[in-house]
Simulated assay, not measured.
Amino acid sequence: MKLLLSILLAGFLGTLVFLGPIGIYILCAIIVGVIFRLFILINEIHKQVVPINSNDRAKDVYKRYIKEREERERETNV
């Protein structure tokens, strides 16, 4: 059923091109709308998959490295 609906929708969008500039404008507006909605959905999925306060291992390792380097500098300066 979804395949048939997709075929019919693609056929309808294809016929819009033959309507001239108005059809091409409508087709481009539909494509831009779909892309915009896709970006919104990807952003929402990203927010759910990657929490805001997630621990980043690279950030933790970098902080530990800076802390150890500062300690070594203090020991050599003493």
Rank of each mutant, 00 (worst) to 15 (best):
F36A: 15
V32Q: 13
I7F: 02
I22K: 11
Q48V: 07
L27T: 00
V61P: 02
R69T: 02
N55A: 11
L41E: 10
I31C: 09
G11D: 01
R74C: 00
V50W: 15
D60I: 12
L41F: 14
K47S: 08
L27C: 01
M1T: 07
E75G: 00
L41S: 11
A58C: 05
F18M: 11
A29C: 11
L9T: 07
V50D: 11
I30M: 13
Y62E: 15
E71V: 02
V34L: 15
K2I: 08
I24K: 04
D56P: 03
Y25H: 10
A29F: 13
E68N: 08
Y65P: 03
L13A: 01
I22F: 08
F36R: 15
P51H: 07
I7R: 02
I52Q: 13
G11T: 04
D60G: 12
K59M: 13
E44Q: 11
L13R: 02
L5H: 08
E71C: 00
I40Q: 09
T76R: 06
E75R: 04
K63G: 06
L41Y: 14
T15Q: 02
G20L: 12
A58H: 08
I40G: 05
L4F: 06
I22H: 04
E44N: 09
I35Y: 14
P51K: 10
G14E: 02
L8R: 03
L13D: 00
F12V: 05
L19R: 03
L19E: 04
L4E: 10
A29K: 15
R57L: 11
N77Q: 08
L38R: 15
